[in-house]
Write a protein that binds this DNA or RNA. Sequence first.
RNA 1: GCCGGAUUAGCUCAGCUGGUAGAGCAGCGGUUUUGUAAACCGAAGGUCGCGGGUUCAAAUCCUGCAUCCGGCACCA
Length: 658
Amino acid sequence: MIDLIFPDGSKRQYDDGVTGKAVAASIAPSLAKRAALIKLDGELYDVDRPLPGGGHFEILTRDARESLETLRHDASHIMAEAVQELFPGTQVTIGPSIEDGFYYDFARAEPFSLDDLASIEARMKAIVDRDEAISREVWSRDEAISHFKSIGEAYKAEIIEGIPAGEDVSVYRQGGWKDLCRGPHFPSTKFVGKAFKLTKLAGAYWRGDHRNPMLQRIYGTAWASEEELAAHLHRIEEAEKRDHRKIGKAMDLFHLQEEAKGMIFWHPKGWTLYRTVEAYMRRKLDADGYVEVKAPQIMDRVLWEKSGHWEKFGKAMFTCETEEGEVLAVKPMNCPGHVQIFNHGQKSYRDLPLRMAEFGACHRYEPSGALHGIFRVRAFTQDDAHIFCREDQIEAESTKFVKLLESVYRDCGLELHAVKLALRPELRFGTDEVWDIAEKKLERAAKNAGIAEVELLPGEGAFYGPKLEFHLRDAIGRTWQCGTLQLDYVLPERLDAEYVAEDGGKQRPVMLHRAICGSMERFLGVMIENYAGAFPLWLAPVQVTVATITSDADDFAHRAAQALRAKGLRVELDLRNEKINLKVREHSLAKVPVIAVVGRREAEEGKVALRRLGSDGQEILDLASAANLLAMQAIPPDVAANGVWGAGGADSASSAGQ
RNA sequence: GCCGGAUUAGCUCAGCUGGUAGAGCAGCGGUUUUGUAAACCGAAGGUCGCGGGUUCAAAUCCUGCAUCCGGCACCA
């Protein structure tokens, strides 16, 4: 007998081997009909699967939040069945649920077309209507291998061959179709419903390895109800409008062109934004005890060989050859340059920790397929710094850095999405003992810095050390590594960095490589998408547009613009012979935070009518107070926070007169 | 780099099964002096990404290349 504890706390006994469905039926037959999954002590089971033991027992319907992943997984199976019905000879491989949906990878010589998605989707709905029973079977490994081989499913057979001999595998039967799967699944296809849509067609390497054949991946999204599906599709549609490439074009921030692939032409407004963020970052670094340097853009290949970069990344470096036959490389990163500066002259333990920063312009010959708007480019600027320190300073420096990073993201309105710890890669320098220490220290540093959850990424570290990655999200939810903190025992060794210790002996410093924005370009892209171009006052490329209603106000408009500029505000003047409606519309679409309207009345009274982006109210203020108010509100958050300027500005912003 | 898709005016896009291009907005010229999200009129603007081929005829069909987009791989 087993004891089951129900959500209401009651306890009942059942026979060994009872299924979740039978338990449901013992409570109410209607419940057994609706049961989609069983949750036992936090684990999910098929309703028809005998329970392995007692515990906290819960019946989930298809609409339960925890059922959604299974619904999506089921949808991927239904898609696979549909594809094999419509396209005989197509092999199935793997098809998991993912955030918001699912995908399945197929092997087929012919490419699927976008039109095929519609017919696959229609067939999926037919399979749901057929209400095929889904049942779990346990097969021996060898039996499963020969079965899948016999029906021409080489990839499935290969997966099972990777399972240790003697182990059993579970196979799910879905009508007449079978798939190797761990489960769990709903009892039948009708439970999945029809709130799904196939969204994307893509290539994907078998087992994620570029040496393997390329499969065809079909992505879909699936939800418990049509309403949720519609809401999701609408969200995506809205999010796509925030794409930094669209906004960059619409707001005239930057452009890219064929002759400089992956390199950005910053236009005046975009460059203003860039400089504003750079100036902010520079203040943050200055305040946090960094010194700023500038190293050469091009250095002899010999140095890159010494650092080890040439071996691993030589092919991805831009190089040139001089007439004397030297091979020079455009710097792909800043570390070796900074070590040269560190090595110049003698360093004492008293100089440590030495935090050496550079807005380092780097060039990398990134693979063509990797380029992506301004997120992934071939010419970019890192807000880079290297902290040379003693081992016993690693922890404190890490904590200090994480605090700085968090304050920057907060000021810039960004939410840290995930922190990951990339561990030793296959191709690396340094002994395993050093890696053991470095990985452990970095993990502890993250914990001590208050990072609650760190996802481990085996094999993804830098060749010289493990790295913490700080990920942000773009408009449609893709994540991008921006901040990083890397612990490096290798480069100081390879590039002979040393300092004089207290006892007069030479010691190797440890290097912390760190960046907060990662690349200024990527960071700005993320900010553009997060704000949808509607930047807070301190960041907006144009902070105020003074717009006239009649040409009688031109003189005063000039004076107003001048008065605002005198307070350090970025001001444009719109004296065009156009209606105020048009001007308001255009500057609103251009995401200018404040429109200062001046008509005949304002000109006579020496006032401006301020209209804030996103509100249709006006504040009518005399010119001097408007200038003071806006200047106060445009103070960057780091400057405002240090208290010198007072913090009174924010309130008056919200008291806009209607 | 790999798989798929796209590429037409400054921008956003239309152009069916081949008959040598069209709209809206912007820009330009004019009229309008206007009160908080699009005033009106007019003229103009295109090697249809680039190269090759099929055809009497190609934006349209075939082919090679480039770039971009969606993924995959890569990311010091």
